[in-house]
Design a protein around this nucleic acid. Structure first.
Lengths: 157, 157
DNA sequence: TATTGTTATACTCTATAACTATA
DNA sequence: TATAGTTATAGAGTATAACAATA
């Protein structure tokens, strides 16, 4: 028996139990819920806070590394980092060892925002997870990692 | 201990283990993977095939009902159904009982496409699910339903 | 030639709201 | 007034590719 009990004779598809559909719907809702915090409180959009959080966690990085760490393509990163620099939240400096590269560093203003925003993000995540049992929370983490790997073969991002 | 072992003293956030981020990344990848079938083979985009599949499963519906069933707003449904009508895949007829309403019905060409496309979609879903254990497959279904409900309070869609 | 990063393009999605026709 | 559906608009996401500078 398949995922949701679809039988071979059931030749129509109920979107409600179709994983790619449900995943998209839930992810969109969650994304909007979390994105709202950053937008309302700091005027930051998702690409921007992804970069902030990545810099906060990993330290200074080149746009290329940010791209790899945030699942955003280099064009998106480039535009977002420019907005962050305009807001004085990050510094963009040339890499002395490779003239093509740049390195992004959090400025103190950016660090301050992270200090404020990260706990809120984790709190929202926690609110979501309250809907799940402890076992489901553990399962979800491993499920997402497996689906992440499974789709790796498809394309980068 | 929280979801992924975050401790209270860990004041930075690793995106890789942040549910809203991972969910978005995985959902996007899955969505692209499945969307590619419809796009390459039939030139259909996600809003279009969501409508086709919904009509195929539930029978004729008004745009409003389609909106509710596919998690798309009425504007998006309106544009997509027009494209489907242009492609001769659906009929849009006036509801004789309510002059404001319309009813969408699959035409034979649309039914044919569904017959061809649904098994492929289910096959791709199956390929994804192969990455999970049987227990995880069951858990995932219930987890998504719970997260769906949990985010219901946020807004409609 | 290949790579890093920026910029341009075109198309889609998203959200909102104005608008019409009917109830 | 409220509802069903259409249409317009603006902002953001997505994909692609052209481009400049450096390796």
């Amino acid at each position: 028996m398949a995922y949701n009990g679809k039988s071979k004779n059931d030749n129509s598809l109920d979107l409600k139990t179709f994983l790619p559909f449900e995943l998209a719907v839930v992810a969109n809702r969650v994304s909007r819920m979390v994105g709202r915090i950053f937008d309302e409180r700091f005027g930051l959009q998702i690409p921007e806070w992804r970069i902030l959080v990545a810099l906060d966690h990993h330290g200074p990085m080149a746009p290329n590394d940010i791209s790899a760490n945030t699942s955003m393509d280099k064009a998106r990163v480039s535009r977002a980092q420019k907005r962050l620099a305009d807001l004085d939240l990050v510094d963009i400096v040339d890499d002395p060892e490779d003239g093509r590269r740049k390195v992004l560093k959090l400025k103190s203003k950016g660090q301050k925002i992270c200090k404020e925003i990260v706990p809120e993000a984790i709190e929202r995540e926690g609110w979501l997870l309250e809907a799940l049992t402890a076992a489901e929370q553990v399962a979800l983490q491993s499920i997402l990692a497996k689906l992440h790997d499974r789709t790796e073969e498809i394309d980068e991002n």
